[in-house]
Structures are given as C-alpha cells and as structure tokens.
C-alpha cells in the first residue's frame, strides 16, 4: 500500500512541476514525471509476490507469474509519452528561437 501512496506522491510532484514552475523545460520535466508515476503505478498493480515474468520457457514450469497486461499497457504509454515529449521539446526549442527566453511569464503574446 505504501508503494502505491508513493506513486501518488510522485504524481503530485509532477503536477506541482507543471503548475508552479516558470521554465518551459521544467514544465516538460513535470509532465514526464506525471507519466512515469502512472506507469510505475500500473506495473506495481500487476505485481504478484514471488511472481516471474509471464514468458514461457522450455525448461521450467511457471508456478506464479505477474500480470502481463499492465506491462503491455505501460509500454504503450511509454511510447505515447515519448511521442509527446519529442513534440513538446521541439516546440519549446522553436519557442526559444522566437522569444529568446524559456520563462513562461515573458511568453504572452496571446491574450484576451
């Protein structure tokens, strides 16, 4: 149970980073932390005590194994967050090119 709570704390740290930080790169890091905390939580949910990976082997019988579905989901979610991070980092680089700063309080041409 305490591990689950730690995951939620990690999630909250991610949200804190997104909401409170003023540097674009730090916001992106916050986003990444949010994603990782959910992946960690997902894999922990699928864990069974003394379980092994759900991969069949020729020589040994498997008595207890962890739930493989969360691992597949976590992998998919990692791929998605990879795509988003690549996109958002390239946008951040372009923003730096145009505005000359990473400070979000100075990036405010759109308003109203």
């Amino acid at each position: 149970m305490s591990l689950y709570i730690l995951c939620m704390i990690l999630f909250c740290i991610g949200i804190y980073g997104v909401l409170r930080k003023r540097n674009l790169v730090k916001i992106i890091i916050g986003l990444a932390i949010m994603g990782y905390s959910i992946n960690l939580f997902l894999v922990l949910l699928g864990y069974r005590f003394h379980g092994r990976a759900a991969i069949e082997a020729e020589t040994q019988d498997i008595l207890s194994m962890v739930d493989p579905l969360p691992q597949a989901m976590a992998l998919t979610s990692i791929v998605i967050s990879l795509g988003i991070l690549a996109l958002v980092i390239s946008i951040a680089i372009r923003i730096y090119e145009k505005y000359g700063t990473f400070d979000i309080t100075k990036i405010k041409r759109l308003k109203g």
Partner: peptide, 22 residues
C-alpha cells in the same frame, strides 16, 4: 504555421492536453 503565436498556443494546448490525458 510555426509562427510565434502558433507555437505558444500549441505549447499551452499540449501541456493542458497531456495533463488531461494523464
């Protein structure tokens, strides 16, 4: 369009959208 305003809007949208997806 990769103009300054478009990038800014897209950054905002991406951050909010990703938080929502999370």
């Amino acid at each position: 369009g990769t103009q300054a305003e478009e990038l800014e809007a897209s950054f905002k949208y991406t951050i909010m959208g990703t938080v929502a997806s999370s």
